[in-house]
């Protein structure tokens, strides 16, 4: 069934990924793909292997087997710092801002890979005008919502074709969650491929096109989001809602 749903013009393609933490195997044949303009959500309980999957895509963890391809380019063969240059923007779990540095410095780090940063930055401020007002503020002193905006903005500075977001709504107020959702939908509209890790089912149902249910380090089932709205039994089974 998963094969039928896999888009042919897949942009990001994860295939049979095995990742170990020491001796314990965290990912066991993780496979899925994300196409341009598509929002794919990895849904699963804590410890299922979602963050590990994103870290493996970014080259921050070395898989012992399997592939990560972006438009046919094998990413697992690249050094970690070369992965973002291929056009992948990463919004890590817990945001991982350079919290002692200013908003401007954080954005500048996002811009490291760009040759002409000006245009990208205008686009980013268009999405997050509030950041432009706080360029000189130390990022650790921003509110939780603003920090999430900055983490997202920093990833967008790469001008990525694929965006990985790891639990972007974690610990945010409902109004902020709506903002993040709007941003994701805007990016989808611009043709970005978006891989979203979430635990909040409502947040997933309102933005995702497809949901991959993760358990024990692999995709146990994949479903279009429409089917989940009609029949939530899968949600009950994999995330207990």
């Amino acid at each position: 069934m998963a094969q039928d749903l896999t888009s042919e013009r897949a942009m990001l393609d994860v295939a049979d990924l095995d990742v170990y933490h020491g001796n314990s195997q965290t990912l066991k044949g993780m496979s899925f793909s994300v196409a341009p303009g598509e929002v794919v959500c990895l849904l699963g309980r804590n410890g299922a292997g979602k963050t590990t999957t994103l870290r493996a895509i970014m080259g921050l963890m070395r898989p012992s087997a399997g592939h990560v391809r972006l438009d046919g380019v094998e990413l697992t063969a690249l050094a970690a710092h070369e992965v973002p240059r291929q056009g992948i923007g990463y919004v890590p779990q817990g945001r991982r801002l350079f919290s002692e540095l200013t908003v401007r410095d954080n954005l500048d780090i996002g811009l490291m890979t760009r040759k002409s940063p000006r245009a990208v930055l205008d686009e980013v401020f268009d999405l997050f005008p509030r950041l432009q007002e706080r360029l000189d503020q130390v990022s650790g002193t921003l509110s939780g919502g603003e920090q999430q905006m900055l983490a997202t903005a920093r990833a967008l500075c790469i001008n990525p074709s694929v965006i990985l977001l790891d639990e972007p709504t974690e610990g945010l107020m409902p109004s902020m969650i709506a903002t993040i959702r709007d941003v994701i939908l805007t990016l989808k509209g611009r043709g970005k491929a978006i891989l979203l890790v979430e635990q909040r089912v409502e947040a997933v149902l309102s933005v995702a096109d497809r949901v991959c249910f993760i358990e024990n380090g692999r995709v146990q089932a994949t479903s279009p989001v429409q089917a989940l709205r009609d029949d939530p039994s899968m949600l009950t089974r994999y995330v207990g809602v």
Partner: peptide, 17 residues
């Protein structure tokens, strides 16, 4: 800036190239 970013969080620094 590159040095400071590496000092604060080397892994995230790598994720930004």
């Amino acid at each position: 800036l590159i040095m400071r970013a590496t000092q604060f969080d080397a892994e995230t620094a790598q994720a930004f190239g």
